[in-house]
Design a protein around this nucleic acid. Structure first.
Lengths: 108, 108
DNA sequence: ACCACTACTATATTACGCTAAGTAGCAATT
DNA sequence: AATTGCTACTTAGCGTAATATAGTAGTGGT
């Protein structure tokens, strides 16, 4: 697993979490596992929860608590209107950046 | 131009500057103009110079000063061995991230 | 009782891009 | 000669986001 993504994840991890929530109602721990499944095995749980807290404080999601049969109660997240808008804006930024970087690389 | 790319540029801008230097000896102001030409019109000069300072402190470049006919002397940058290695690592990280994000997006 | 897994919270650190303000050389206009 | 405008580099301080670290709790198996 290649190296230290930390800095490169800034401004991207939050967008990824928004995308995961946008794909269907999920809870935090599930998001952690999903990211690990994508290859981010080194992302600590704490990191994801701080992102979720920020997303919550930014009023991008609605939240429902439900008991779990396997542990403490879960917090389920769903994107609200602002969250969907923010997600759309994230993808727009991402595509723009990707394009410009490709431009740079292929100018060599 | 869309966005506030600031956060998304973290860990990326430095790599882009390394790539530009890797494409041939350049000086700071030239790098600024190159980035603006790529679409980053909103990147302030100061930002690029702080990146260059960091790159210099990290011993990733060799530097030559040469007088300019148009203003103050220029600092020309060339990647050294460590710089080339860092550039390679940057592209590796970038491709990995790009792949994973594409995976996430196409899972919808 | 102890451990492992599930599940969430909170504080402090660190790195990086950004702002803002500055210094300076040169050329052309006023 | 003074002002403007472009070229060219420097630096201190700030805001933000990921990370590390530590902690709280519920459930189930040994």
């Amino acid at each position: 697993m290649p190296e230290n993504m930390s800095e490169m994840l800034k401004g991207v991890l939050e967008g990824m979490v928004l995308e995961i929530i946008g794909q269907g109602e999920v809870y935090g721990y599930e998001i952690v596992k999903k990211l690990q499944g994508l290859g981010f095995k080194d992302i600590a749980e704490g990191t994801v929860y701080t992102v979720l807290t920020r997303i919550e404080r930014g009023h991008l999601v609605s939240i429902v608590r439900r008991p779990s049969a396997l542990g403490p109660p879960r917090k389920f997240y769903t994107l609200n209107t602002r969250g969907k808008e923010e997600l759309r804006a994230f993808w727009s930024r991402w595509e723009t950046l990707k394009q410009r970087i490709d431009d740079l690389k292929c100018e060599a």
